[in-house]
């Protein structure tokens, strides 16, 4: 496993120089962003088994606040990121406290409803640009605005954030908190009877997840310099996090990254083949993948690999 991690790290570090072209860099940046968002979702959705379908609310807050502080006070957008994290934490508490008292689908429903509520509300609120959205600085006033013409700096910034997130996830995995999470996922009643502070643990997982999802949103809007209700709070933003994580394997360390490695290039390919208007087809594809996954391989590629790997032992591979 150690060699696998090393190979993956080297491959991701070297990628922009192997495929030295803006087109590939752009895919790489999108891939890393999807991996960050899905890994953040993974903490509460995968490890704790509390399936949020409204994580776009944290992503959207993360995306909006940096551009908002720029528009209001001409601050560098990145200064808004900590504020966005704070807001996301408050929202996570507001949603987590009531819904985590209940089991099952409540949390999923509540997250969808709240995310939609916020999306519609933002779309009518002139202070944050209503349906039109917000723009970042057109030309960077200095390096602190983080407006680079090349994708390369973003690629490495995103890679660092992903590495930190995976490191944190790894630490969580090994900690008592991580065992609590898996116990809750396996059976809430059993976990409670064994003395796991269920509600508190779920809330902690949601808070940690919200922090990184918010950061992912900030990275997105700082990079693109533009945000509107659909690209920040749209239901498809949430869906993408779920599908990327579920494809690779929800509740596993590298699952979301593997899912992103497959899905993002595939998405780019469908968009290229079917033209720019092919976004609808992308979502038909998404729906189909999700459905088939749930029906036949709910553990994602991770579990499939675990089943197939012993059979392939005669041809050992590094990854």
């Amino acid at each position: 496993m150690k060699t696998g991690t090393l190979v993956l790290a080297v491959a991701l570090l070297a990628y922009p120089f192997v495929l030295y072209d803006h087109f590939y860099w752009d895919i790489g940046v999108g891939l890393l962003l999807a991996a960050i968002s899905a890994s953040a979702w993974n903490i509460v959705g995968g490890y704790a088994g509390q399936v949020s379908v409204g994580h776009a609310m944290f992503f959207g807050i993360g995306a909006y606040v940096p551009l908002l502080v720029f528009n209001l006070w001409q601050l560098p957008p990145i200064a808004g990121a900590p504020l966005a994290v704070a807001l996301s934490l408050v929202l996570a508490v507001v949603i987590g406290l009531p819904t985590f008292r209940l089991r099952g689908h409540y949390f999923s429903m509540a997250t969808i409803a709240v995310a939609e509520l916020i999306r519609i509300f933002i779309g009518t609120w002139d202070f944050v640009g209503a349906a039109i959205g917000l723009q970042g600085p057109a030309v960077g006033r200095g390096w602190w605005d983080l407006t680079f013409r090349s994708e390369l700096p973003y690629y490495y910034i995103f890679l660092v954030v992903l590495a930190v997130l995976l490191y944190v996830t790894r630490a969580v995995e090994k900690s008592r908190f991580g065992y609590y999470l898996r116990a809750i996922k396996a059976g809430e009643r059993a976990a409670r009877s064994l003395g796991v502070p269920v509600q508190q643990t779920k809330l902690k997982a949601l808070l940690l997840s919200a922090v990184f999802t918010s950061i992912a949103g900030s990275l997105y809007s700082i990079k693109t310099g533009f945000i509107d209700p659909e690209s920040g709070f749209g239901i498809l933003i949430s869906v993408q996090m779920v599908i990327v994580a579920a494809l690779g394997g929800a509740g596993t360390l590298y699952g979301p990254l593997v899912g992103a490695l497959i899905l993002v290039p595939a998405q780019t390919a469908t968009n290229t083949w079917f033209g720019g208007g092919g976004s609808g087809l992308t979502y038909i594809l998404y729906g189909g993948i999700i459905l088939v996954l749930a029906r036949f391989e709910p553990g994602g590629l991770h579990e499939l690999w675990q089943r197939l790997a012993p059979r392939l032992r005669r041809t050992p591979r590094a990854a």
């Binding site: 399936v51 087809l281 038909i284 729906g287 459905l291 749930a294």
Partner: peptide, 28 residues
Amino acid sequence: RHVMRGPMLAQILSTFGLALLLRYTAFW
């Protein structure tokens, strides 16, 4: 029938995937 006693993620994803499939096929 195949997912209802499976993990929560599979339960939610199954009809969620179906919803996306139906919605965007209708769009198409």
